[in-house]
Design a protein around this nucleic acid. Structure first.
Lengths: 347, 347
DNA sequence: ATGAAAGCGCTAACAG
DNA sequence: CTGTTAGCGCTTTCAT
């Protein structure tokens, strides 16, 4: 029987076989209660016998609900976004929805194309990490939407889920302080990204709250890549080699932190002993580096799960959730030295 | 206008506005040629004016083509599968299809549920890395299918795409030989997986072709995880510590190779100098390990792209492609020592 | 080149 | 509790 194209059973076939009307079959399928046990049993039997499977297109056509959801992220190949997607996926499946996945590559044109596909597919809702500055020209016809990440802040009317950057930065800065380090130097992403602005604001707030001068912290620009982190760290090292400065470095993501570690090694210095490096993201690769990368982990999977739960809520007509910021977490490995303990040991 | 739920324009609205019939609008939308330039222009204008967007549900209902495709992989969070998915995604988008993504977690029940969702969504085709041993009970109604990976071999009637494990293993074994190593010890995945059998068969063939005894190679079982690789390597080390044995190790995936590297370090030995380790996969994390992981890279993205191209071909009614095995590639980093060059240097 | 009519499979609204 | 009817938006077929 496999692979043979034969006509699929419809609700009418089931109705005929079970000796009831289409409506009754539909009621059973929908799980409605107002059906006699007898009729239900006959319908179920017919469904099994015919191998009937509901045509969700037809359902969607009539009811307006397709059982389809969509997620638009920059790149499914990026471990962070893969985790987010997985979280969303699991929640969607659990509720009987299927998930369309799109990668925008931070490209406005691609994003626009994906949004069109999403609207044409008549999905019941979508989770989006927006790259365009605005969607004024786009009418979503009231389609439930949840935005992801810092860039979502540009859209005040749409609920969003992301990590709590301010809290994560505080965690990192405190980690340095508690281990006896001065304020770290910073390796940041591109100036255009909203996440950078949030990061720096958190640093400033931290300094001010402790009567430190935020102007004193050195900032190197990079681009979220390993190579960029490598070069930024190299510049830091040249800036003030062996002068006891830049012995603590906080990178805005793990890839740059890993690149920075390579630069330290290249310069003949050792990470931890000579320079302490802290990352931000929590990607698996940090486990394998030498030394292991100490980092601030974003709750990636939980972000996806939460976004999906919000979306599902909005689809069911519950009120909107507003802005949700999930807490980050310190993962301690070996790239940040504990100066206090070292001193104790030396004594 | 944003967020306001207003009725979406239909083909009838467009027809009215353009002063033509539904049929003519449909013809323009389909890109048919038998439409006067005048009519086409009016339709296009009306489409733009009304912000009309085709309802793919209705199209699918009538024409049988939904523009939806599906992919079922074990876990989108696994970098290998994320790459495969991305490859498939790009090709699908290019042809105007949207992609439903499912993670099966190597779980037969989950897989079955996903396949049901796929059939209910009336997708035009699907790419599947099968986990169940057979789908005899499932009738796909002639839905175009392409299978992924070694496990696809269980389904002779369905075309499949995967990496060429035999060629990859040969590449690895040759790499060891060319650098002056004896036959490596092996860290393998679970005995149940078809990929393991293929791997070992390739090793046996290699040995026989060179008059070596395949029985001489040591095999440690593991489970494709870092921890499993760590333990397997530890056993290897105990087996014959410092007796010049197991100085070359070939792991069946990168994660186990990375775990093995950790075990070597833990034992006070050094990777490359004391033990050479070769991985299989080509995951990004291998770039950051210390030393960098030398590995056999599977063409993950290309596998996804190729599978999707095959699927699209089958959807368009072209003949089936049969079994496709894409070649692997050696990525040389620093975890495999070149014994010949070392000797030269020492002289 | 264009239009009219039928109908894909289902659910919603109503009637009984 | 159950059946009848109408119609979602589109493509297809047939006629003109």
């Amino acid at each position: 029987m496999k692979g043979v194209a034969q006509r699929r059973a419809t609700i009418v076939d089931v109705a005929k076989q079970a000796n009831v009307s289409k409506s009754t079959v539909a009621r059973v399928l929908e799980g409605k209660i107002n059906v006699s046990d007898d009729a239900r049993a006959r319908v179920l039997k017919a469904v099994a016998a015919l191998g009937y499977e509901r045509n969700r297109l037809a359902v969607g056509m009539r009811s307006g609900r397709t059982g389809l959801l969509a997620i638009v992220i920059p790149d499914i190949t990026n471990p962070f976004w893969a985790e987010v997607t997985r979280g969303a996926q699991d929640q969607a499946i659990k509720k009987g929805f299927s998930l369309l996945v799109f990668s925008s590559d931070w490209d406005v044109a691609k994003e626009a194309a994906h949004l069109q596909a999403i609207r044409q597919a008549r999905v019941d809702g979508a989770i989006i990490n927006p790259v365009a500055d605005n969607f004024d020209s786009i009418d979503f016809f009231g389609m439930p939407l949840v935005f992801l990440g810092s860039s979502a802040e540009r859209f005040p009317e749409i609920s969003s889920v992301g990590s709590d950057i301010k809290q994560g930065v505080n965690l990192g800065l405190q980690a340095f302080a508690e281990r006896g380090h001065a304020l770290p130097s910073l390796i940041m992403g591109p100036r255009s990204r909203l996440a950078r602005i949030r990061f720096l604001r958190a640093v400033t707030d931290y300094c001010i709250a402790r009567d430190m001068d935020p102007e004193l912290v050195t900032i190197e620009d990079a681009d979220y890549t390993v190579e960029g982190g490598f070069q930024a760290m190299s510049r830091l090292l040249e800036l003030n080699a062996r002068k006891e400065k830049h012995r603590a470095v906080f990178a805005a993501n793990d890839l740059m932190a890993l690149g920075a570690m390579m630069a330290v090694r290249k310069a003949g210095l050792r990470c931890n002993e000579d320079v302490s490096i802290l990352g931000f993201d929590g990607i698996p690769a940090g486990m394998f580096s030498m030394p292991g990368l100490t980092t601030i982990k974003k709750p990636s999977r939980q972000i996806g799960e939460t976004a999906m739960v919000c979306l599902l809520d909005e689809i069911e007509g519950h009120s909107e959730h507003g802005r949700i910021h999930l807490p980050c977490q310190l993962i301690e490995r070996d790239s940040v030295a504990d100066l206090y303990r070292q001193n104790e040991i030396n004594r």
